[in-house]
Design a protein around this nucleic acid. Structure first.
Lengths: 110, 110
DNA sequence: TGACTTACATAGATAGTCTATGTTAGAGTC
DNA sequence: GACTCTAACATAGACTATCTATGTAAGTCA
């Protein structure tokens, strides 16, 4: 199996928020799995990136977390997008698209 | 005027090499200007990013540099893509596209 | 009890961008 | 010919955000 790609710096928060926007109330592991699956198995989020990112966004108020139980009765923290988080996501996506288009302009053949 | 965007980490080398692939024998300032113009004035490469990137790629043998004179008779270093640089560029673009597509999958609405 | 697994967590390494600053040298002015 | 301005190159240090590596807690199952 081909090794998966790293998450480009600056995009992880956006990917997490977007995942929560699809369906809220997921815990960390689910978010990571969802990103990997949703990217066609190209992107892999490491735990050492995931949890710090969730902490950051808790602090900034983009998500709220609540301890609960998984279907297998394990404790887990369930995250939900806040209004501020949704706003932030919009801005991030917009900025990402603008930059991507700019890069595409340069990459395309002369 | 809207403030320009930063270059996403990991993409600068690719943008520089691509610029040199369009037309070789440019000096640093020209490369930076070319990226800014070619991106529709969205991306701005700072000198503190540009020159270290060029040094890195000189060391890795992706470009070669030669001192010369600008049309205004100022000394400047002219860069040219090597075969290794061209190869590297191809790989970088391929990897960039793969990751971009993966991110696009996640960003698109459910 | 012990092995295994899920889930969360943190410390430290690393990479690559930026800001800020500095140097060199030619052009133009008085 | 001293002075200023600018082009072009250069480097140090800050910062951000990813990764690797490691650790802990707690549940399941043999």
């Amino acid at each position: 199996m081909a090794p998966r790609d790293e998450i480009p710096p600056g995009t992880l928060d956006m990917l997490i928020l977007r995942t929560l926007a699809h369906r809220a109330e997921r815990h960390g592991f689910e978010i990571a799995e969802s990103i990997q699956r949703g990217s066609g198995d190209v992107l892999q989020v490491e735990e050492g990136s995931l949890y710090p990112a969730l902490q950051r966004m808790l602090l900034k108020g983009f998500v709220v977390g609540e301890w609960g139980r998984t279907s297998e009765n394990r404790r887990a923290r369930y995250y939900k997008l806040t209004a501020a988080g949704r706003k932030h996501l919009e801005r991030e996506v917009e900025s990402y698209r603008r930059v991507s288009s700019a890069i595409a302009l340069i990459l395309r053949p002369a």
